[in-house]
Every structure is written in C-alpha cells, then in structure tokens.
C-alpha cells in the first residue's frame, strides 16, 4: 500500500539517513581493508629446471639462492616444491634430464619481478624457467594439492585397477604365448 502520510515518510527517511551516517566510517573502513588485502597480496609461482650436470650440492645451492632472492625482495614463500630429477620431453642444450623446482610465493609489490626474471635468465645453471601469476582458483588448487585432496581419487582407482589387473593379465599372456608357439610347430611339421 502507498503511504499517504508525509510526516511518517519523512521520519523513516531521516532515521535511515541517521543510521547510515553513524555507521558510514565503519563501512568504508571495512571496504578499504577488504580490497587492500585482496588486491595487493598476489600469489606467483616460479618453475625452473636446473642443469643435471651439476653436483647435488650445487643444484641445491642454486635453488636456495633463488629462494633467498625471493625472500630478500620482501615476498613470503608459501611452498617450495622439489620435484627432483625428471626426464625432459625434448633435449635442451643436449641434456635430456633436469631437476625441477616449483616455488609458490606471495608478495605485495611486483616491480622486482622484472629484475628477478632477468637474474634467472642470466643464471647459467638453469635450463628453463617460468613465472606464472596465480588466480584465486590456482591458489585454491595448490592449497588442496598440498593437503592431498587432489589426485586421491585417481590413485584409489589405480590401486584397485592394479589389484584386479595381475590375474587377467597373466591369463592373456598364456594365451598369447600359445598363439605364438602354435604356428611355429606347424611350420616345423611341414
């Protein structure tokens, strides 16, 4: 129903205005804090492949140097993942393997990243590197992966598959062997 009483209407309007005026600073403060936290803290991920010709200590030293550079620039390391020696999909500088590292870090300013990438480029111990900015889903994915939420289902499937697999596989092998042997016998007879 439409309210025809102007007095009442004005009163409610004034009341709303008063409530907003008293709480306005609180609203704005929370708003600014929320966006400051969200916009300025950014997550990045740097991957690099270390030359396998180096000794184990040298490989670790190069990885530590890079981590020191990250922390020295005011960024906090969220997680440093050492994936170890892996086969490359194609040879790089006549090397077919490499030590993979993946470091996730959070920082407020991003200007130093240009310099950081230049340093990685100049580093002769590295075969490859890649710096990626993570979106909110990427951060969540990495977090879940560390907790072990991702990939558990497929592992269970694999485990059940491997448990049931050996018996049929053996039977198939026997049949194949028979099939292979049979023609030879016939050939010998002829």
């Amino acid at each position: 129903m439409i309210c025809f009483n102007p007095k009442l209407n004005l009163e409610t309007h004034l009341h709303k205005k008063a409530v907003f005026a008293t709480f306005a600073p609180v609203f704005y403060r929370t708003f600014i804090l929320f966006f400051n936290n969200r916009l300025i803290m950014r997550h990045y991920e740097v991957n690099f492949v270390v030359n396998p010709v180096l000794s184990g200590d040298e490989v670790k030293a190069t990885a530590e140097n890079i981590q020191k550079e990250i922390t020295g620039a005011g960024a906090s390391i969220v997680h440093a993942d050492e994936m170890g020696l892996r086969q490359l999909a194609y040879p790089i500088n006549k090397r077919s393997t490499g030590y993979y590292y993946c470091i996730e870090f959070a920082c407020e300013a991003s200007e130093w990243l240009v310099k950081f990438e230049l340093n990685l480029k100049r580093n002769e111990n590295l075969l490859r590197f890649l710096t990626v900015k993570l979106d909110k889903y990427g951060i969540k994915y990495n977090d879940d992966k560390r907790k072990g939420l991702i990939g558990t289902r497929s592992k269970k499937k694999e485990a059940s598959a491997s448990a049931s697999a050996p018996a049929p596989a053996a039977i198939i092998d026997d049949k194949e062997i028979e099939a292979v042997l049979a023609p030879e016998v016939i050939d010998l007879d002829v």
Partner: peptide, 12 residues
C-alpha cells in the same frame, strides 16, 4: 606452458 618447461613435447 608445459611445452616451454619440457613437460610436454612440441613435436612427437
């Protein structure tokens, strides 16, 4: 990205 990091091949 995976190709750049030699996780996947460019040609195979």
């Amino acid at each position: 990205r995976a190709r750049h990091l030699a996780i996947l091949p460019f040609v195979a």
